[in-house]
């Protein structure tokens, strides 16, 4: 007869006996030894039907595809940048994923990202060989300048973000700060020093009470106390571009002069085009006899 020996949502430690019998199936954070299921990671126990697994409470960040993280540039490569994203392995921004600009062969890449720069990036691929590709192109991505960075454990990031972003938008709305929460636990906050201070305090509180229910109420009380009653009733701040990664605005282009984007983009145009002040009539005179009249 199979039976569960630990309550669901209890904290289990490595080596702890979770269940007896063959009716349960071990998932992440657990293993089977004979007819016992034993934890092999520290975490919260979760049982869904027959499947037994644990949710980690600590540990370094595990990179996942499509995660937005904040990374620190640790090296400038021949065609890209190596970025520390707080996991076991570093990630690489390829040249194409770093900037919208055309970058000529042998150009100085530190113009876009330099060592020790921080950037909001998205993980585009994680290979089985632990090579991680990231991109700094996209909405809300790119180099981060100004503001301050704080770190929380990556296991607590979901609580900082809240259900479909409710917690961050609460903080943004109440304080008026610009906030980027990386899945790896790095959080970028930009506002006035006073506003930033309130956000840092709120995040530290979320971190402390992450596994306890009623977190939103607790944060709301804290914000009211720090900022006054009206802070929570401010209108929603529209989602804005945070990073510096932005496609150059199209309206600045002049359709009458500019050619469509091409592989020559960014090169000096005068070298490849005939001079603009060449008399236009000469050309048309030569062509008209065959073209327009008959």
């Amino acid at each position: 007869m199979s039976k569960l020996l630990v309550n669901e949502r209890a904290i289990v430690v490595p080596g702890e006996l979770i269940a007896e019998g063959m009716d349960f199936l071990p998932s992440t954070g657990t293993y089977r030894a004979n007819d016992h299921i034993i934890a092999n990671r520290l975490g919260l126990l979760q049982v869904s039907g027959k499947v037994v697994k644990t949710v980690p409470l600590s540990g370094v960040y595990q990179p996942k595809k499509n995660d937005v993280v904040i990374g620190k540039v640790i090296d400038v490569l021949i065609s890209g940048w190596r970025v520390d994203i707080g996991g076991a392995y570093s990630a690489v921004i390829g040249l194409k994923d770093g900037t919208f600009d055309f970058v000529a062969r042998g150009a100085d890449l530190t113009k876009y990202f330099c060592i020790d720069d921080y950037a909001a990036v998205k993980i585009t691929n994680v290979t089985s060989q632990n090579l991680i590709d990231i991109s700094a192109k996209g909405q809300g991505l790119g180099k981060l300048t100004g503001g301050r960075l704080i770190t929380v454990n990556s296991a607590k990031v979901p609580r900082v973000i809240g259900k479909s972003g409710s917690m961050v938008s609460l903080l943004k709305r109440a304080t008026g700060c610009r906030i980027v929460v990386g899945q790896n636990g790095l959080i970028w906050i930009n506002g006035t020093p006073e506003e930033e201070y309130v956000v840092v305090g709120a995040i530290r509180m979320i971190e402390k009470y992450a596994h306890i229910s009623g977190l939103t109420n607790r944060v709301e009380t804290y914000l009211k106390e720090k900022l006054g009653e009206e802070a929570l009733n401010r209108p929603e701040v529209p989602e804005e571009q945070v990073g510096e990664s932005e496609r150059p605005p199209m309206r600045e282009r002049r359709p009458d002069r500019d050619r469509p984007r091409s592989r020559f983009e960014g090169r000096d145009r005068r070298e490849r085009r005939p001079p603009r002040d060449r008399p236009p009539m000469q050309a048309s005179e030569e062509k008209t006899p065959q073209g327009s009249e008959e």
Binding site: P14, I38, N40, R41, A155
Partner: peptide, 11 residues
């Protein structure tokens, strides 16, 4: 090691 979230079969 357990606190660091390392996979380990026992203490």
């Amino acid at each position: 090691l357990a606190d660091a979230g390392i996979t380990m079969k026992d203490l």
